[in-house]
Design a protein around this nucleic acid. Sequence first.
DNA 1: GTTGCGTAAATTGTGTACAAAAATCGGTAA
DNA 2: TTACCGATTTTTGTACACAATTTACGCAAC
Lengths: 236, 236
Amino acid sequence: MVTRTESVTRRLREAVLGGAYVPGGRLNEMALAEAMQVSRTPVRAALGALFAEGLLDYEPNCGYVVRRLSLDEAVHIYTVRATLEGLAARLAAEIGLTDAARERFRETLDEMERLVAGDSWGDAEQQRWGDLNIAFHGQIIAASGNGYLANSIQRTRTLPLLTESGVRTFLAERAVVWWDRAAYRRSQDDHLDLGEAILARQGARAEAVMREHVERAGRLIGRKLANRSEAALALS
Amino acid sequence: MVTRTESVTRRLREAVLGGAYVPGGRLNEMALAEAMQVSRTPVRAALGALFAEGLLDYEPNCGYVVRRLSLDEAVHIYTVRATLEGLAARLAAEIGLTDAARERFRETLDEMERLVAGDSWGDAEQQRWGDLNIAFHGQIIAASGNGYLANSIQRTRTLPLLTESGVRTFLAERAVVWWDRAAYRRSQDDHLDLGEAILARQGARAEAVMREHVERAGRLIGRKLANRSEAALALS
DNA sequence: GTTGCGTAAATTGTGTACAAAAATCGGTAA
DNA sequence: TTACCGATTTTTGTACACAATTTACGCAAC
């Protein structure tokens, strides 16, 4: 049996990340409680948890609002994320992958390569590539063997979303949907370098490539956002 | 007016960090409420906040306990902290300090040097050096201009404490109290290198020195802890 | 029209009662 | 003794009522 607080927290998190509420918009406890068919108690607990995760802002006696990130903050987060993922890549390379992990790693890389190098490149291919991209980074983080690091990285990713004129897009995990095909090719080249470095146990190289890889993604997104100044950028 | 939840959270945080509760020990809501002269409501909010900060563990329907870190977890956290502080040092070097910041930076370094190189080295000197050490790192972090990074680093520091046979010692910020004088000298040499690199705008060097500096501290602490296997190590 | 103020309404903070789950304890049987 | 089971006690989860604070609104003065 899961508590109401847990399920409300999960539902509310998904709603916020999905862009159900406008950034900067206030979250009324009573309204949420009625919508979720629970009392204010679990709602308040959920709001507190999401505030701690960085999804919401909070002012005592004032309530919670969906966090609104400035462009600067988004860039800062990407800088940290690039460094942390770089660390994960280095650790993965130094520790080395298990045989099973190495096998899955190669398979993921191969499928991504086939997609990017293939003839057709539609929504389905982009979606699949995005999933594999997340899996690829996840495999490296897992191979680092550092749970605190994994949590820290997850913190920088679970969340950013852009809500703009009704269009809702994840910033971190799904940002790639904004890129043109050349950017995918470039990204995949980084992945190939990364795979090479990690499998060859070259820690410093893996770290450098990963850091640059993530920072490039951050720059691309920063540029996109800067072009749409009215963009409502929410959440870290 | 500050809410009860806020003050209870602060008091409870200080109590946990101060080692008032044994790691792994359960925190009874009713007992805390009576001790703090409030109802369970603000106590529960405070417990949730401290859980989110990583000071407590939580199991639904089971309650909160003071977090107990394994030696591995402590090492993992130090690895992340070393990387993040390295990033801060690089950013500070690349951005450069303002004139005022540079002045304070030099003063901090000079006073630390005078202390370490001086004739007397008692508790007062160690205490003062510890304060200056925290200020020194804080100045670099502030100069990085990245608030998210500052929070991430604070997360890795605010907390670790070691409770062992009645002796309560902070692990992160005050760990130096365990060192012998040679270790202080070595640490101060790192600081001098760091200061040189940052003032000379040598980002890569500053990053490398800082990373090694923090990792060394982590290794020293890890060794100390390993020697006292029964040590109850709490909190990240 | 704008500003300031005071009251009313709405919203959040806290206490408390009760429900639900877990921990404890005692007793029984192997 | 030990293991298991069940009732009791304890502790946590939730709902709700009320207090405290903030916000909204209307009115008056400038």
